[in-house]
Design a protein around this nucleic acid. Structure first.
Lengths: 303, 303
DNA sequence: ACAAAATAGTTGACGGCGTCCACATTATTA
DNA sequence: TAATAATGTGGACGCCGTCAACTATTTTGT
């Protein structure tokens, strides 16, 4: 329960902080884009096989408004639309080179403005502030995030592929070979998906996919665990274990006797989850084609 | 200089924090007021002898927009306008009872929403967050506030009176007798103001008055220092000393030999400023009519 | 002392952001 | 196969906020 003084503290912070970021916002507007437009560009840039509906969902913007905005983006040459081959209602959206250029320009402006707002601070103060903000963010997220688990929908496939690549690439610096491999195994998984023997569950944070786990039949009473992934900001909060429980419960319900998984050396955080759920490392395979010194590990769990 | 990681930290914080306060804003809008309207009501409520121009200056809102908003407020019965007796261009604005009621309703909604956003946190976490936000606010203000010193204008008088009362009242719990006393001495000071012998300087923070100091002739070569005041959030940053320098420099330029001041016991922070500038405490006078155990001190400085 | 400049407030016109509703087209479900 | 849902579009509209022009009054400069 907050005291009156604490509420005043928070409002005092808001006033100063909002005032500071008014400058950042003004610079974006100065550059010819509304804040919403900038958000949309950001979302397009980081979403593979993006479409209007995804943007509407992620950003909570009205559909008609989005339609008009995208029309305008297309007219300006920022994006390119292409009707989906499998569902002709959907128009995929991609940034053009010019669009990416403009987006980078906006990001630069924003970064410069933020840097400018902090430039008069000593580096100790800057560090202290960043640490304080990260701490605050973590605690607030932890307390207010709405987490849900649900089976996958068609629209999740892009998420799984794109985040799988991004997270592994960012964290482990993997090569293009790995990227092609991910595409292949995910599409393969979905094409041959059988609800009797397989499952793919999605963790949603505030209505947005933020993690996944899958089980696929690999033999008579053997299953393979795949696509285990959790957004970095949600780690260390027990959701990894929840996903793993979900997957292993499914395996038990389908009477699998053995579950195995393949993972990359030094995925330290995940390793802990594997161990607590009874997985044991069996063997290593060199995968240096994916990156310098990468080794794939084979783990197994007997149910 | 911020690192890329730190910029990402800040943006990550912004995203979560803005999302949280979107709820607070939505609740205000739900209650029938825009955020700007709420800000304006707040400003009216805390400004004595408020007028449209003050609001425009403090909040950075367009004059025409403000005019229309106030017209609407009047129509709704939230405020009352009264043409100034001394300057018929000015219309003073005051909240009506209904206006105050509505403002309190909005404040309650806001406080409830903020409390709600933090309610799932443990009290240790809440304390840690508040501390972190206050620290951040202080450091950011310190680095970015634009401070200016300037002679007073007519429009500052209300500020000096109102803040003098509020700050002393809040910090020392003084009585109504004190309030009447402040009104009297300030108006008296301004009525008899002579630029040859007197001065009243205002400290502005980001264009808004945030401190004051005055000198008034009290005898042939004696001056009285008055209305020394600094907003709490600007203390401990050297601005008190800057104001005092300004005042004492004026005294020297006018060849005063002695400067005295009257202050209230236990204004601990100010005391330090007095001492560093060569003031010595000479005597005490009981002022229990202003409040329980209040003692007025007489300090003197020989130039 | 008087003209010029500044201040306080008002009004009209306008543009952009965002919402609501209706609708066309295509997929999915019952 | 019919009902329902999903994707995207267009029309109408309201609110927020800005710009420019104008009146009335006060202050300033010479």
């Amino acid at each position: 329960m907050l005291t009156q003084d604490q509420i005043a503290d928070i409002q005092g912070f808001n006033k100063v902080y909002q005032n500071l970021f008014k400058m950042v916002d003004a610079a974006i507007v100065e550059a010819g884009y509304s804040l919403t437009e900038k958000e949309v560009l950001l979302e397009i840039s980081k979403t593979e096989r993006c479409n209007a509906n995804i943007l509407v969902g992620q950003l909570g913007i009205d559909r008609s408004y989005m339609s008009r905005m995208l029309k305008q983006f297309e007219k300006k040459g920022l994006i390119r639309k292409a009707v989906s081959g499998t569902d002709s209602r959907i128009k995929y959206i991609q940034l053009t080179d010019f669009g990416r250029e403009e987006f980078n320009r906006l990001s630069d402006i924003q970064n410069r403005q933020i840097t400018h707002a902090f430039e008069k601070l000593s580096s100790e103060d800057t560090d202290a502030i960043c640490e304080a903000l990260v701490m605050t963010r973590n605690k607030l997220s932890e307390a207010n995030d709405v987490i849900a688990f649900r089976p996958f929908k068609q629209s999740d496939i892009e998420y799984v592929i794109s985040r799988h690549k991004t997270l592994y690439y960012a964290e482990r610096h993997l090569s293009g070979t790995f990227s092609a491999y991910v595409d292949r195994i995910v599409y393969d998984f979905v094409d041959r998906f059988d609800p009797e023997t397989d499952c793919l569950n999605i963790l949603e944070c505030n209505g947005i996919p933020a993690g996944s786990i899958a089980i696929r039949k690999a033999g008579e009473d053997t299953a393979q665990l795949r696509f285990f992934m959790l957004e970095p900001e949600l780690r260390q909060r027990g959701y990894g274990n929840r996903l793993m429980d979900l997957a292993l419960d499914f395996c038990r319900s389908r009477n699998y006797k053995t579950v195995f998984l393949l993972t990359i050396t030094a995925q330290v955080i995940a390793r802990h989850v594997y161990e607590t759920h009874g997985f044991c490392k069996i063997s290593d395979t060199d995968k240096s084609e994916w990156g310098e010194g990468v080794v794939e590990e084979y783990w197994e769990c007997r149910l």
